[in-house]
Amino acid sequence: MTTASPDFPDTIYAIQHLAFEDLGVMEDIFYQLGFRVRYFEAGVDDLSKAFQHKGLTIILGGPIGVYETDDYPFLQQEIDLLKVRLEENLPTLGICLGAQLIAHALGAKVYAGHQKEIGWSKLSISNTPNNLLAPLSDTPVLHWHGDTFNLPEQAELLASSDIYPNQAFSVGKNILALQFHLEVAAESMEKWLIGHTCELRKAEINIPALRADNEKYAMLLETGATEILRNYMKQVMRK
């Protein structure tokens, strides 16, 4: 159950850009902490309520790019609402595309990377005081992206990978951006493999090997995710 401020909203708002990229194992962790979850579908729902939420709002991943506003006009509204939210320093967690949106809203460049980063590998955790990602110092995580971003000027780098230096950052205590996927659940990976088959084929990813790595590492990642989310929620709920 929750252990901090009783006036902190007890519903987590999650913005989805793709149906099968949901909160995954994070949803159960939030339930264990005493929270409820409500989803909003980007491009379909009015996202104003989600971005004006005084509690935690999570922006999930998806296959589109931050810079594709001409093809996906809803992205511009999402960016505009996010800018206001970040200016108000409201609790915000971004994953993959969500992290890229946060970086862009903070004035950093988001762009196509030099190669796809898809698969399980360890992070290099920054040696910063009270790094929320310390529980992942020896745990492989799932990477699944082609875009990357520069580190916003006001941000603190939390993690890097061998391929891309900016894998996670925070701004103060409330804003957390993760390029990698903390939320992946072992039992739902098949949905990703089916839904992203075109991307996987084009990137020449070994699908059976990716499935096997998921079975090997996903439960370890869930342990780390639990500790990270518990610590993050304690942090954002303090008055």
Rank of each mutant, 00 (worst) to 15 (best):
T148R: 06
Y39A: 08
K49L: 14
I95C: 04
D45V: 08
Y31V: 07
P152Y: 03
R38V: 08
T69M: 13
N206R: 04
S126C: 14
I95D: 00
E68I: 01
E204L: 09
I59Q: 02
Y67I: 03
E222S: 13
L47E: 10
I194C: 07
G195I: 04
R36S: 15
L56C: 02
A19L: 12
I205A: 08
H114D: 15
I79T: 11
A168Q: 06
F40Q: 00
C96A: 13
S5M: 12
P129R: 13
G24C: 09
I29V: 11
K109W: 00
L136T: 04
L23H: 04
G24N: 07
F35A: 10
H181Y: 05
G146V: 04
L123G: 04
L97Y: 13
L75G: 01
Q167I: 07
K83C: 12
V184G: 05
F149S: 08
A203M: 10
H114K: 15
S126L: 04
E41L: 14
G62F: 00
H104S: 15
S5V: 02
L176F: 15
F74R: 03
E153C: 01
Q16S: 13
L136F: 13
A209E: 15
R201V: 12
T128E: 13
G146W: 05
L158C: 09
S5G: 09
P63N: 03
I95G: 02
Y39G: 08
A209I: 08
L142R: 01
I15W: 03
E227T: 14
Y232R: 09
T128G: 07
D70Q: 15
F20V: 11
Q76L: 14
L220H: 14
S121L: 10
G146R: 13
L158R: 02
